[in-house]
Design a binder for these strands. Structure first.
Lengths: 348, 348
DNA sequence: TGAACTCGTGGGAACGTTACCACGGCGATT
DNA sequence: AATCGCCGTGGTAACGTTCCCACGAGTTCA
């Protein structure tokens, strides 16, 4: 029942031209008579012709396929990125092969292999770790996304402006009277962690805060990771109000759960600042104050950069997208209750 | 600099066999000597051979590509589905082309065309509307996901068991003393809406409730849609406690926002029951009580069904996955405060 | 007026793989 | 001992497109 799909040869025959001419007409090349082009287009419509991307890719080397390798499509931030990339790719007639690496090295490697075998035109990658061997051997054009840019200065990358983001967060914390925030960070193996931490330290120094004295806990970049990290934080000795800067919103929300479970209240007893700007932060109670990355826009720009990279155009280099602070209710305003300098006397 | 990628011919030459034998060895066919196979595999490793999926697809008709068309990868429920599908596909050495239709007809059509041109082996589709012309003409194996199964009895489909889900929700509402819940539904054009509504009516009849008397509002399947629907609901006359069954969690969370904005409290003044089971529901305050669909599992099963469909195996038919109730804090327990029958005297 | 050049067209090769067929060698059957 | 069938192998065609080259007609320039 399933009839053979019409090929360019069927179109050419129907239009009464050679397949070369048909091909030129269909691909929009210039050197074709208007009359011939019209005949070919009509014929194509009549027989229901649809180009075979495989054959095109085979012959021309361009598949119209892009790869996207992110940690987890289930993480709302990465879903935003994927959506942006998807839409921009679609505008240019290309499709996206989406993979989740789960921050797993071997999984990432196998995804990259799959992309190579599919002969994608290029890929957008958030690399798992600082070991770039796999990327070096990738052999296709690619653009990095996320905080890994600096480790790979030779390729272009798109990420959020971490320095600016941390400054936003710190300014906000300080303006609310939190001069010695604790940190909840991702696992030690992640590049993003080092990036965040270093920037944080720089900002501490600028403000005469000793970063070594600040409490700090690790966890997976998940709700559960944030919850357990916060539990450990709460078990430490502390004086007065505790403020926490979490490296990602899911962890921040997990921290909020831990606070509630400990019988404490946010923001009365504990203040929490997140990082990502995922929608869920708007529904927590209190609403999560956070530094929002422009996820969707990062995806869009990454695709643009990738097209440049593929075309061999002078590379965009590293693009850092500005973040913005979304103020909701998870930070207490200590500056109202206390004399201006008092807050810095307590440990946290 | 970029050396030509090694082909099967390079491997054959290096192994000292014909490309036919090399091909058989690499594709794991049986009729090859162990010795020859080993030589070929060694040679392949030595030259760094990686199969060209395009050429395979071209010749064999199998591309190892599957399509996934969902409304929005940014919706956490659909992200779960995508993740499940992705993982299952990867287990079988196939990759996923992911598209978001935004419930837009023309966008869906163009995605389907892209899938055809990419010569995917098959697709998993959550169709936009009840007009199946595009699907009829799709021309490739596909599996439906979501509530659209019944309109397309001839193809296999995977969805949640709406009947069971609505029963779970209704039982829970009634057990808490809410005998006349209001509804927040999706747009009239969506199939899912009709499906939900009809099942709901059946359950009302079973419980001697007149569904026509229940308040009902529409909105997009988004936070904002739920928020405005709830605002309209709150503007209506009502007596006593208001209970709302929302057709999706995002709408339920939006409704919760509207309640707060109206100066009311959930669950003290308004009870809200959601539907989907997205993670964000765990962080709202109060936590969202909801009927959770097995999103990930739906994705997994859809891929399994699709493989069956592609292989022409006796089709699975329609698979309905059971849902489960997640009780958090968004429903008031009226059964404690009031005489058993009193609740049904009020309108809502 | 003849050479050079442009333009639209057509024919064939090429991309890398698998499907198909034919062949030779070997063991089993008649 | 001749035949049949099986197994491993190699050669060739085919998938559908684009690229490259050659050709003829028309145009321009010396």
């Amino acid at each position: 029942m399933q009839r053979r799909r019409p090929t360019i040869i069927d179109v050419a025959r129907k239009a009464g031209v050679s397949k070369s001419t048909a091909g030129r007409a269909l691909s929009g090349a210039s050197n074709v008579t208007d009359e011939a082009r019209e005949r070919v287009l009509d014929a194509a419509r009549a027989v229901g012709y649809e180009r075979n991307d495989l054959a095109v890719g085979m012959r021309s080397g361009r598949t119209g396929l892009l790869g996207l390798v992110i940690p987890d499509i289930t993480n709302p931030f990465w879903a935003e990125v994927a959506r942006g990339a998807q839409d921009r790719a679609a505008e240019n007639g290309t499709s996206l092969l989406v993979f989740s690496s789960d921050w797993d090295h071997s999984r990432e490697a196998s995804h990259l292999r799959a992309l190579r075998q599919a002969r994608v035109d290029g890929a957008i990658i958030n690399p798992v770790a600082d070991n770039f061997d796999d990327l070096d051997r990738f052999g296709l054009p690619f653009v990095l996304i996320g905080s890994s840019a600096e480790r790979f200065p030779a390729t272009s990358s798109v990420g959020s402006d971490i320095a600016q983001a941390v400054r936003l967060g710190m300014d906000h914390l300080v303006s609310k009277g939190h001069h010695a925030p604790a940190l909840i960070l991702g696992p030690k193996s992640r590049i993003a962690r080092a990036r965040f931490l270093r920037t944080f330290h720089e900002h501490c120094v600028d403000r005469d805060i000793d970063p070594a004295a600040l409490p700090m806990e690790d966890g997976e970049y998940t709700v559960e990771g944030g919850r357990t990290a916060m539990m450990r934080l709460l078990q430490r000795d502390r004086v007065g109000h505790l403020a926490v800067f979490a490296a990602n919103d899911l962890m921040a929300l997990g921290a909020m759960v831990a606070v509630r479970e400990a019988g404490l209240r946010c923001p009365e007893d504990v203040s929490i600042l997140g990082f990502d700007g995922i929608p869920a932060g708007a529904f927590s109670w209190p609403g999560l104050t956070t530094v929002a990355k422009p996820g969707r826009e990062i995806g869009v720009r990454a695709v643009d950069c990738l097209f440049d990279e593929i075309a061999g155009r002078p590379e965009h280099g590293r693009v850092f997208m500005p973040c913005r602070l979304i103020e909701r209710g998870s930070l207490a305003d200590l500056s109202l209750n206390q004399p201006r300098r008092a807050a810095s006397s307590g440990r946290g």
